Computed example of a mutant assay.
Amino acid sequence: MATQNPFDFSALFAGFDPQAIAKQFQEGLSGVSIPGIDSNSLIQAQRKNMELLMSTNQAMLAGSQALIQRQASMLQESIAEVTAAATKLAESGNPQDVSARQLELLQSGFQKALANSNEISNMIRETQESVAGQVNNRISESLQELKETISKVK
């Protein structure tokens, strides 16, 4: 029996259609006429905004899924390492060897936790930078489009 991935949130966005939203916006503006303003440029701007919203949501979703998968992988690795370490400690009969091995495990565990923390931080930062870049670009484009639309008003 196949089970659904509990971390697959793509179904939440399945019904989100930027084109349909832009069409509704266009239909809403069809009876409205603002002198000197090109309603088609407003509609196109809104379409681009909806497309940006969809793409940034997809990027955040993909980033979140990758983060969750990596954390699950880290947990599995940690469990395997702890199991192996416990086995080695149980085999060691000399208290000095056990103490030395415990110190090694502690140091190695700390280094691994630090590396994992850095990796997770980098994954989050990369996703945020990507999305912020897309949003910043669209804001700049939108401001330029608005400037052009206003400059056409007489």
Rank of each mutant, 00 (worst) to 15 (best):
Q44T: 07
N136K: 10
D8Q: 11
M1T: 09
D8W: 11
A66I: 04
V135T: 10
I79M: 12
S140I: 12
S78T: 08
D97L: 07
V153M: 05
E27I: 06
V82P: 00
S99H: 10
L61T: 10
L61P: 03
N5E: 06
A20D: 13
E141N: 11
G31W: 12
S99A: 14
K147T: 15
K152H: 15
D38M: 08
N118W: 02
Q4C: 01
M60W: 01
V131G: 02
N5C: 00
Q76I: 04
A100D: 10
S108Q: 12
S130I: 02
S78M: 06
F110K: 07
G15Y: 10
P18S: 02
P35A: 15
K88Y: 01
L75Q: 12
R47T: 00
A86K: 13
V153Y: 03
S73E: 12
A80I: 04
K152C: 12
F25S: 05
S117C: 03
S117A: 14
T149E: 08
G63S: 04
A59P: 01
E148A: 14
T149P: 03
E27R: 13
A62N: 09
S92H: 03
M1N: 10
K88F: 08
S39H: 12
L143H: 04
I124R: 13
A100V: 11
L106H: 06
D17P: 10
S140T: 15
G93W: 01
S92T: 06
D97G: 01
Q102C: 02
Q134L: 09
S64W: 03
G36L: 14
Q76V: 07
T3Q: 01
V98A: 13
N49W: 05
T3K: 03
Q4K: 02
S64D: 09
A115H: 10
G133C: 03
M54F: 03
T87F: 04
Q128Y: 14
A132R: 15
L114D: 10
Q102H: 03
S55V: 01
T149I: 15
L67V: 02
V131W: 02
A45G: 09
K147I: 05
F13I: 03
E51W: 00
I43L: 06
R101P: 00
A85E: 09
Q107S: 07
A86V: 07
E119R: 13
Q102R: 11
E141D: 05
K152G: 12
N94S: 14
Q134S: 15
R138I: 01
P95D: 08
L61Y: 06
Q65Y: 06
S55C: 00
N5T: 00
E81S: 13
F16K: 08
Q96M: 11
R70C: 00
L146F: 14
L114G: 11
S64R: 13
V131A: 06
M54G: 00
M60P: 01
T87V: 04
